[in-house]
Design a protein around this nucleic acid. Structure first.
Lengths: 194, 194
DNA sequence: GTCTATCGATACGAGTACGTTTCGTTGGGG
DNA sequence: CCCCAACGAAACGTACTCGTATCGATAGAC
């Protein structure tokens, strides 16, 4: 078995991870204008040559960095649709309230508008973030709790979008009861008559 | 009356408007990384000195440019709440579908995360964009069409956010019937029993 | 028609990022 | 224990932006 292939990863992997980590720090702190190979290398304590050795372009580096950092919300399904939705959205609102997540989102959203590879990655990360919500709604529909012809993807939009919007666009406060209020408003329109 | 004060505006105003226009073009085309005084002046066919004469910093220029370009949606109120909402959101979705508006939004959203002055401007422009929706909902509540304790601001979030979200975050298509579907979902939760 | 404020153009030195190359160092597999 | 792949540091020339300064040219007020 060629252990040499893994040798390369020994030191290399260490440096690689430092660079990925530094990339997100730079992006969150300085935004796209400051996201430069030099700046990332500097913060990683790495040589520019090392960065260029691993990634052909800043966008390739950014794609890897975002992919490495992504952690899906743990999906639960207690059978109580409202409680589960509120739980997920509360966790999401809390992530949006603290740095660096919203700044990363803003910078990455802008970058995704101008680079097709970043655009695909943005869509893919969003899809992964939505998955727990989709699963909850599908399960509830399976239990007959939702009207039959509900468009689950649209309902997920209605649930998730207001949090992005408040934080990144409207710059307004997100009170603690907002997840509950959003869920109640949306469920009112899709719950099957009981 | 000192016509001299307006003299300065004669030529100056002409150049100033060309620069403001160019600023938005640059921002939409290149994003924040390319939004540089030199680049704006070049596109405006103006001298760097002229730009520096009018604006002390890139953010000041950006604030003026966004403010100058903003045009509110004409607000109508036919008395038919659903139709009026769908009309407004359709116009909004159409703006979001074409360039350069979404690219401007993405770039400005990112910039607003890192510059307090831009953040306030972003919030203010958003508030102005929301106004027609708020007025429609307030009027409908006045007519007794909505449940009494409805949170109008939250309802506006629910109505407007999905369009931003689909275009800028999820990168998914916005079918022609989306405004109607969103309005129906949201109104289902807030309409007064008739 | 003249006068003057503002214009566009151009030049400036300092600073920085680019992408590449070289070189001495070091850590981990064989 | 040795070897070498990958490392960090540094230098390279090019190109760009910065913010300021200086220059005729010109438009518009009087």
């Amino acid at each position: 078995m060629t252990e040499t292939a893994r040798t390369a990863l020994g030191r290399g992997e260490h440096a690689r991870r430092r660079v990925l980590r530094a990339a997100l720090e730079v992006l969150a702190d300085e935004g796209m204008p400051g996201f430069t190979i030099e700046s990332v290398a500097r913060r990683a304590g790495a040589s520019k040559a090392t960065v260029y050795r691993h990634w052909p372009s800043p966008s390739a580096l950014l794609v890897d960095a975002m992919d490495a950092e992504f952690r899906p919300f743990p999906d639960v399904d207690t059978g109580d649709l409202r409680a589960d939705l509120v739980g997920l959205l509360t966790a999401f609102a809390s992530a949006l309230a603290g740095s660096p997540f919203p700044k990363l989102m803003a910078a990455f959203t802008d970058a995704a508008e101008r680079d097709p590879a970043l655009g695909e990655m943005h869509a893919e990360l969003t899809r992964r973030r939505r998955e727990p919500l989709v699963r909850l709604l599908d399960a509830a529909r399976g239990r007959g709790e939702l009207v039959g012809d509900v468009d689950v993807e649209l309902v997920v939009d209605l649930l998730a979008a207001p949090f992005f919007y408040r934080r990144l666009v409207a710059h307004r406060a997100m009170p603690a009861d907002m997840p509950g209020a959003v869920v109640d408003h949306v469920l009112a329109g899709v719950r099957a008559p009981s």
